[in-house]
């Protein structure tokens, strides 16, 4: 693998060919905010929070799906980008019913922490207050659609790590929502293997272990990393035990 030299926020760094800007920045200690990226599953470039400015490119590009190139000059934290990020977060908070005070993920929520790290002290857009349901039918897990940001991490881990294909997005636009099987209640899903990866992957309080109350839902991403390493790199899977 050839190495590429590039500049991120004034820092000269080198990255492996084929690496994404997000990976390269991460290794260089530059944290680019994102909500839809999850280590171990493919990227979709949907949340638009990791957009960066690349010199010579008129459009903003998502760091998660843009590969590094020799001589790239990247800015990840301009005033314009910060403004857009804050607006994106405000749009998310206005879209569904994210009531942090009474959320299982309060204090362990990526949406919440991004909001304060981006300086969002209030939401300037009118809250939509849509009517979404809570699916508590599963034996072990719950899904609160009010808190879903449609990052599709749960869908991607379900399809690409577990291979069950239980979760998907149905509908479109503002009506898009996460389903299990044929939009049946989760507890009725025949394909769900109850592996719980979706719960580990969720950045907000949308997916949770049953029994967790406000601010109790913490995630353990290392469990996902372990599985990804097993499946992709096949490090310890050698054919026979």
């Amino acid at each position: 693998m050839a190495a590429k030299t590039l500049t991120i926020d004034g820092k000269q760094i080198s990255a492996e060919e084929g690496a994404t800007v997000l990976q390269a920045a991460d290794e260089a200690g530059v944290k680019i905010p994102t909500l839809c990226h999850l280590d171990g599953v493919y990227d979709v470039g949907a949340c638009r929070l990791c957009l960066v400015e690349i010199a010579g490119v008129p459009k903003l590009l998502p760091a998660c799906t843009t590969q590094v190139a020799e001589g790239m000059v990247i800015h990840t934290d301009s005033e314009r980008l910060r403004k857009y990020r804050r607006m994106t977060l405000e749009l998310l908070f206005a879209e569904r019913n994210h009531v942090c005070a009474v959320c299982v993920a309060n204090g362990h929520c990526e949406l919440q922490s991004l909001a304060y790290n981006q300086g969002m002290d209030h939401v300037r857009y009118e809250y939509n207050f849509p009517k979404w349901s809570v699916d508590n039918t599963h034996r072990l897990f719950g899904m609160d659609h009010n808190r879903c940001i449609l990052c599709t991490r749960c869908v991607r881990v379900c399809w690409h790590i577990e291979g069950a294909g239980t979760k998907n997005v149905a509908g479109r636009g503002g009506k898009a929502h996460i389903i299990s099987d044929l939009n049946m209640s989760w507890g009725q899903s025949y394909s769900c293997t109850e592996c719980g990866k979706c719960v580990q992957a969720c950045p907000t309080g949308a997916l949770f272990h049953k029994g967790s109350t406000a601010a109790e839902m913490e995630r353990d991403r290392t469990r996902l990393e372990f599985l990804v390493t097993a499946r992709e790199k096949k490090q310890w899977i050698t054919g026979e035990e």
Partner: peptide, 16 residues
């Protein structure tokens, strides 16, 4: 939060 986001009191708004 109630002043800033309408918070818990606004949960009734979801009923339309």
């Amino acid at each position: 939060d109630c002043a800033v986001t309408a918070n818990v009191p606004a949960i009734r708004n979801q009923l339309g």
